[in-house]
Simulated assay, not measured.
Amino acid sequence: MPLVSPVVKFVIVGSIIFLLFVLPSLVSFGASWLWMGEIGFRTVLVRELTTRLALVAGIGLAAFGFLRLNLRIARGPSRPLPVVMDDIGLRNAAPTRRPAGNLLGVASLAASVFLALVASSGWLAVLKLVHGVRFGINEAMFGRDVAFYVFTLPVLSGALALLVALTVLAVLLVVAFHVSSGGIAMSVGLVPRGDIPVIAPQEIRVSRDAANHVSGLVALYLVLAALQLWFVDIPGLLFSSTGPMVGASYTDVHARLPGLNIAAVAALLAAGAVIAGIVRGKARRYTAGAIAAYAAVSILARVVYPAAVQK
């Protein structure tokens, strides 16, 4: 059976993508273009299109640059992982595997395009923020102008969610790279037991560079989590539905609000602990402890205490 050439494969895959994704979008856009032209609002469609393209280009390039930067950092010089083999000495545990750099580069490009396309759906919120004006009416709980909740909060929420998703993707790509390059690997060694060497249990060995890199991204995630709590979740209490009506209830004001502030401070302290672990060369231990402590404080402050007050 003759092999299919790469060009033919590319044409087949490209045709499938075009028929399933590109063509329906073009048909929809063409219909909208004709309809908007008939009713005299084609400029609205042009504004939507230009805003979407600007968001896709800007966010896509920024996301791709961030992911590629992390992959480049991951390709830096790695340190060998010593594993005890016997009573004679140590052996380098890092396997001589070729990192999947090209594949992860393509994955970072695909992830960047996907994030950019998702973010472009918020074009209307961006235009509202750009052209929004103050209402001149301040809400009673935080004293902010109502325009903040109409124009700023949706964009701020989407931007922080996008940054969190980008950070998580960076963690996954970096971990995948270090696994493929041997920076993160399962190791088996021989340990003496009496006069007979026995096989030691398998352990996950993480190089210092890999641990520092992943821990740095975890610290960034914790900082973003704190920002989400302060600038999105706390203002969002005004839209709470825990009470009989939409708005901040007694539990929201006296339990959830303090809990969110405590969780935000805990996230920043956890990020500081992770950075301290990187500086002291104990990134794995400090990162694991910081995540566990933040999770415990967050559950107690945001779930357990408000539930107790609600009862």
Rank of each mutant, 00 (worst) to 15 (best):
R256H: 11
A159V: 13
R75Y: 03
A57V: 10
S249Q: 06
S187A: 15
A161Y: 05
T96R: 13
V7L: 14
P197K: 10
A248D: 04
A292Y: 04
G76W: 02
L103R: 12
N102G: 15
S78G: 08
G236C: 06
D252P: 07
T287P: 06
A100G: 06
A308C: 05
A119Y: 02
A165W: 01
I196L: 09
V198M: 09
L3K: 09
Y250F: 12
V130T: 13
L163W: 09
D195E: 10
V179T: 08
V150F: 10
I88L: 06
V164F: 05
G30S: 09
L190Q: 14
G189E: 05
G189C: 08
F64A: 11
L81E: 01
A74N: 04
P192S: 14
P82T: 07
Q228P: 00
L257F: 15
G158N: 12
V146Q: 07
T43V: 06
A111F: 08
T152W: 09
P6V: 09
V27R: 15
S181I: 02
L53D: 03
A100H: 13
G30N: 08
N138D: 12
S241G: 05
E139L: 07
V27I: 15
S5Y: 10
V191H: 15
A301H: 09
G243H: 03
A170R: 07
A147T: 04
G158W: 01
L153N: 07
A159F: 09
F177H: 13
W230P: 00
D86T: 11
L71S: 14
Y305H: 02
P99G: 08
V84M: 06
F66A: 15
A140H: 05
R97Y: 09
L49M: 07
L124D: 14
Y250D: 14
F239S: 13
Q310E: 11
V8T: 13
A264W: 02
L173W: 01
P154H: 12
L163A: 15
G60R: 06
A225N: 11
G277T: 08
P258A: 14
V179N: 04
S121I: 00
L69N: 15
A276I: 12
I262V: 14
P154E: 08
R302G: 07
W35Q: 09
A100I: 10
G259K: 11
V206S: 04
A290D: 08
Y294I: 02
G143Q: 03
S298H: 11
S181Y: 01
